[in-house]
Amino acid sequence: MRWDNVYVAGLGAHLPEQVETAEEAVAAGRYDAEEARANGIRAVRVAGPDEPGPVLAAAAGRQAVARAGLPADRYGMVLHACVGHQGQDFWTPVNYVQNEAVGGTGLTLEVRQGSNGGLAAVELAASHLAARGSTPQAALVTTGDAFRMPYFDRWGTDSQQVYGDGAGAMVLSNRGGFARLRSTASYSDSSLEPIYRGTTGWTDGPFHDGRPVDLRSRKSDYLLQEEGAYDRVIQQMTKNASQVLDEALADADMKLADARFFVHANIAETIAQFSFYSLLGVDPETTVYDWGRDFGHMGAGDQLIGINHVAEARAPRPGDLLVTMGVGVGFMWTVAVLEFLESPAW
């Protein structure tokens, strides 16, 4: 989708102060040393007892709202994307984020699309703003996750993935900003949905057996059901990723080589090398991956947090293009292209 009048007016991130390194996790017997070497994630941030995902998200949201400098009554939508438990059952964390970060009476929605939730929310917010182009409006998108034992083991629940706590935020506006959203593209392939559901059947509630979530077994059970399933899935995912990237680049009237920045998830080094640098042709020098190896995979927020890092630390210039890509279980891919119009004052 090509966007003409959707802008980024503010960005924010909130990363907890406590650091836990991969070295420390290996020494404590929580993380396999061989996996640590292969995955390449050096450390994660660990949220405090009173910092569930929505609290982190509200802090990131307040920063983005302050940087945007727009009045609260202009926010016609607040979207909150997350992956893990949000600190309370039977609750709507997005309304907490709205109340704590910006206020107002705009539409609120929670987005649950796995690791692609942040970018999926950006595309939804852009659609909302474009449909209301005759009136000045803004939308706040936040992400926030804190991965805690005994429900979730950040070092062991998933294979080739280490989970860190953190939150990101973006303010979109239909009246201007320091960057322009040039295009987005999304693609879903629900035939891959069973990979993370597994084969063990349904449960009556979360944490039903008192053990941490086991995503490793779910994936292996599915992929070992038939010969060649692993290769088929990899080929299918590669095809889908290429398709959505090509669509977004075409709608933005650019080639991948035109991008000064490329922001992808903070995943295992082996996956980044294979999926992004080898198959898609992304130049590692354009990414923030080396920085991200000190934070790990922050649920739905890697992309928004990474874009914030670019704005704060990589000195974007007017005309610079940024491409960001997400993929979430289900499976769904989203690519967004931003063009910096100026260096943000903050």
Rank of each mutant, 00 (worst) to 15 (best):
L70P: 09
H80I: 05
M77E: 13
P93Y: 00
V122K: 01
Y75F: 13
R112S: 06
L129I: 02
G133K: 00
P93L: 01
L79F: 04
R74C: 15
Y151R: 14
Y96L: 05
A43K: 07
A146I: 01
V83P: 00
A64D: 11
Q113K: 15
A72T: 15
G69E: 02
Q98I: 04
L70H: 12
A146V: 04
A101K: 02
G104N: 05
D153Y: 03
N95C: 02
V46Q: 10
G133Q: 08
Y96P: 00
A58Y: 01
A146Y: 02
G103D: 09
V78M: 00
R148K: 14
A121V: 06
A120S: 14
M77Y: 08
P71Q: 09
V111E: 00
V46H: 08
M149Q: 12
Y31H: 08
G114Y: 11
S134W: 02
T105Y: 15
V111H: 05
V97L: 09
R45I: 12
A38W: 13
G114D: 12
E51S: 09
M149T: 08
R112N: 10
N99W: 07
R62H: 03
A43G: 11
A66G: 10
A121I: 05
Q63Y: 04
S115E: 15
F152G: 03
R45T: 14
L79Y: 02
L129D: 00
I41Q: 12
A125D: 06
P49D: 14
T142W: 01
A64T: 12
D89Y: 15
Q86E: 05
L70W: 12
H85D: 15
P150Q: 10
R132Q: 05
H128L: 08
Q113G: 14
L79M: 06
A121L: 07
G40E: 07
Q63W: 04
D145H: 06
V141E: 00
P71S: 08
G104D: 02
A131T: 08
N99T: 11
R132G: 09
G69S: 03
G133H: 09
A138G: 06
A57M: 09
Q86M: 09
D145S: 03
F90K: 03
Y96W: 05
A130R: 11
L70D: 08
V44E: 10
I41N: 10
A125N: 09
A57S: 08
V83G: 04
A139V: 06
